[in-house]
Every structure is written in structure tokens, then in C-alpha cells.
């Protein structure tokens, strides 16, 4: 039954498969830490995947593809910032419409390039390190975007918790008025990190179409991952490392679903392809449940539960989704 199940291969596939999702999750974590919900993720990823694929095919340069995808992600995010931060429109409405619109835009503009040959960011083992036993294969035998995603996790943590810019960003997300009282411009910070987060989301699109799920077609394999990234941000309690771990967990579920397919040939393959999505959302539901009044009351009575819920529950940035009132 367990034919062809190799732990190392699975671990390596998880690290590689999660790369785009890690980028998107980190991008959205930054954005939400500044208090803005960018709900347009799902469409943005598809659009930037298309842009990256087309540009890389035409120019023959992978770098150009990645650059353009980041620019596309930043542009869509700039729209979200413009409409929600400057015009005070509902972040949910704007993000949702943009997510549908950008996806259709991707399929419309990209249709003539569908199923054409394009460049692929191939495997580039790290010299020396890839020769290490176990870790070499799991961590150091990947393509450049995968390394990038791993570095980004560490960088995002360092940026958020160890730099003065990261501190300012967290301040705005927690309390815009207090940030303003300390000489920080909350609107500016929100716009900057919405756009920066959008650029990371854009990069994740390129990581899909040029690396993890190479190529472009309809439907692109990356559809739906934007919603997963949004759920992962909550699941990861707005902490970059925890959110990234969530992305690896999701990638693990996806890899396992392929194995399950061979173990349960009677169940149609499509079910396993879809299964990780609801599973993830329900994990999220459980982690939200911890916040509920009943759960808190219950935890008050059982000290052991209290410790557990404290560990799981992490409140969202206090100004998340709110617009700043001006007089």
C-alpha cells in the first residue's frame, strides 16, 4: 500500500510546492499587519502568473517575468489602497470585485498564450550544501524562487520584529490614532504596505507560472490559492513564521492527496484535489472558534484549556479593516 512513499521526496515536494503560497501569505500578512484586508489575492495571483509567463516567454528572461509579476501585484494592491484607504470604500467590496475582475482579465489577455511553451525556472542545487545528507535534498536542491521563498520567511520575521520600519508598521496596524500621536502617518504606512504586500503576492503568481505549476492555460492551477493564503494569514495569527508554517501544512496536504489517490483508487481524483481547500478553511474555523465567548468562558473554568487557547488564539491587528476617521 505504501509503495513509492519516500519521506525525503515528500518533504522536498512540500518545500517546493509551498513556495508560491508562502510568498502570497507573507505579502498578505504584511498588508493586514498594517490594518488593510486585501481580498483581491486570488485574482491577483492569476493575473500576475499570466503576466509573468507572457513576459518571460516573449523576452526569454525569467527575471523580467518576476519583475513584471511584482509590478502587477503592486498595481492591483494600489487600487485596493486607493479605494479603501483614500476613498474610504469597503475593503471587502473592493477586494472581492477586484479578485473576480483580475482573474477574468488574466484569462482574456493571456488567452493567445495559453498552452504555449515558456521558460521554466529549473532546479539549481546549492553547491556543497546540496550534498548534505537529508537536508541537502529537502532544502538545497530546488529552483531559485523556492530558495527565495524560504529566505523571505526569515526576512519578513526580521523586518517585522527587528527593524524600526517593522515596528512602525505594527504600530499602525494596532492603533492608528496612537501611531499618529507618535508622528507616524498611518495612511501613508497603510498604502505603502498594501502595495508592498501586493508585490509579494504578484511574485507568488510568477512562482506558480514559471516554477511550481509551469505554463499558462485555463484554468491555471493556481486558482483558489489566493483564498487559501487569506485563510492562512488568519490561521497563522498574523505572524509571518506561523503563516508560512500553515502554507507548508497546506502543501503537505496537497502532496498527500496525490498519495491518497493511489491508496484509494475508488474515490475520484477530483475530490482529493479539492479536499485540502475545505480542510484548511475548517482548520481556520476551529482556530476562530477559540475566540468565541463560549470558548473563553469554558477556558476560564479549565486551567489546562486556558493555556491551550492562549497559545492558539491571537487577536487580529486591532485596526484591521477599519478606516481612519478624520475631523
Amino acid at each position: 500500500m505504501m509503495d513509492g512513499f519516500d519521506m525525503l521526496l515528500v518533504a522536498s515536494a512540500v518545500i517546493a510546492g509551498a513556495a508560491p503560497l508562502v510568498m502570497a501569505t507573507l505579502g498578505e500578512t504584511l498588508t493586514e499587519r498594517a490594518g488593510v484586508v486585501n481580498l483581491s489575492l486570488d485574482g491577483t495571483i492569476v493575473l500576475s502568473a499570466m503576466a509573468a509567463f507572457v513576459v518571460a516567454s516573449l523576452s526569454g528572461s525569467l527575471l523580467a517575468g518576476f519583475a513584471v509579476s511584482a509590478a502587477v501585484g503592486a498595481c492591483v494592491a494600489a487600487l485596493v489602497a486607493l479605494f479603501s484607504v483614500r476613498l474610504g470604500m469597503s475593503q471587502v467590496a473592493v477586494g472581492f470585485v477586484l479578485t473576480l475582475m483580475t482573474r477574468d482579465l488574466a484569462y482574456f489577455l493571456g488567452s493567445q498564450y495559453a498552452r504555449t511553451e515558456g521558460p521554466i525556472s529549473g532546479s539549481a542545487p546549492v553547491p556543497v550544501l546540496s550534498g548534505m545528507p537529508v537536508l541537502g535534498q529537502v532544502l538545497f536542491n530546488h529552483s531559485v524562487p523556492v530558495y527565495l521563498s524560504m529566505i523571505m520567511v526569515a526576512f519578513a520575521w526580521w523586518y517585522l520584529y527587528r527593524t524600526s520600519w517593522g515596528l512602525r508598521l505594527r504600530c499602525v496596524g494596532e492603533n492608528m490614532e496612537a501611531a499618529y500621536a507618535r508622528g507616524i502617518d498611518p495612511d501613508l504606512v497603510r498604502v505603502v504596505y498594501t502595495v508592498a504586500g501586493g508585490a509579494l503576492v504578484g511574485l507568488s503568481g510568477a512562482a506558480f507560472s514559471l516554477c511550481t505549476k509551469p505554463g499558462w492555460g485555463q484554468p491555471q492551477g493556481c486558482e483558489g490559492s489566493g483564498w487559501i493564503a487569506l485563510a492562512l494569514v488568519i490561521f497563522g495569527a498574523w505572524h509571518p513564521v506561523r503563516a508560512a508554517l500553515g502554507a507548508y501544512l497546506f502543501a503537505f496536504l496537497q502532496v498527500m492527496s496525490i498519495h491518497f489517490q493511489s491508496w484509494f483508487p475508488d474515490v475520484p481524483a477530483q475530490v482529493f484535489q479539492v479536499a485540502p481547500f475545505p480542510l484548511m478553511i475548517f482548520l481556520l474555523a476551529v482556530s476562530t472558534l477559540v475566540h468565541s465567548e463560549e470558548a473563553k468562558m469554558l477556558a476560564e473554568r479549565h486551567p489546562l484549556l486556558r493555556i491551550l487557547t492562549r497559545g492558539l488564539a491571537q487577536a487580529p491587528p486591532l485596526s484591521l479593516g477599519k478606516a481612519r476617521s478624520r475631523d
Binding site: M89, L100, F108
Partner: peptide, 24 residues
Amino acid sequence: SLDSSLSGVIQGSMVIAALAVHSV
């Protein structure tokens, strides 16, 4: 030989534009 998703592009941009114009 254009993709039919153009309709979605028009519909989405319509909503965004209307919301923006209305809020302005």
C-alpha cells in the same frame, strides 16, 4: 479569437468604477 472572459472584465470594472464614482 478573443477569450470570452472579457465580459467579466467589463462587469468587474463597471462595479469598481460605479462604487468609486459614487463614493467620490
